[in-house]
């Protein structure tokens, strides 16, 4: 399972980078979305995958019974998802505004600030 996940993570990273290197800004954003998902999946895999119960404490007890999954990786991923949601929402607004101003979907036409 772990090696399968590792391959999936690798493919996601590769796809993300390929999309980011395209000239279209829409594809750039798609690349960023894939990239953040790849990072989340990497945390999930690297944190160790165990077939165990969810880490919830039963009613009236102080600690969970038996083997439970590591709650921290899930908390990390949830936080990372929330953050990337916010940032990517911003990125979408940004490219929308940029498109309105520049009237181009081509990164090669956006070189004014590099001269």
């Amino acid at each position: 399972m772990e090696s399968l996940m590792a391959i999936v993570v690798g493919i996601l990273y590769a796809t993300a980078l390929y999309m980011m290197l395209r000239r279209s800004i829409i594809k750039l954003v798609i690349g960023l979305i894939l990239l953040s998902n790849a990072a989340n999946l990497l945390i999930f895999t690297a944190g160790g995958m165990t077939p165990a119960a969810p880490p919830l404490v039963p009613e009236g007890m102080l600690q969970p019974e038996g083997l439970v999954a590591d709650p921290l990786t899930q908390a990390l991923i949830l936080t990372a998802i929330v953050i990337s949601f916010g940032v990517l929402a911003f990125a979408v607004v940004l490219i929308h505004r940029a498109y309105e101003v520049v009237k181009q979907d081509d990164m090669d036409m956006m070189k004014d600030t590099d001269r």
Partner: peptide, 10 residues
Amino acid sequence: GSVLTIVLNL
């Protein structure tokens, strides 16, 4: 608030 600010603006 933040989701709707973005959605309404778009």
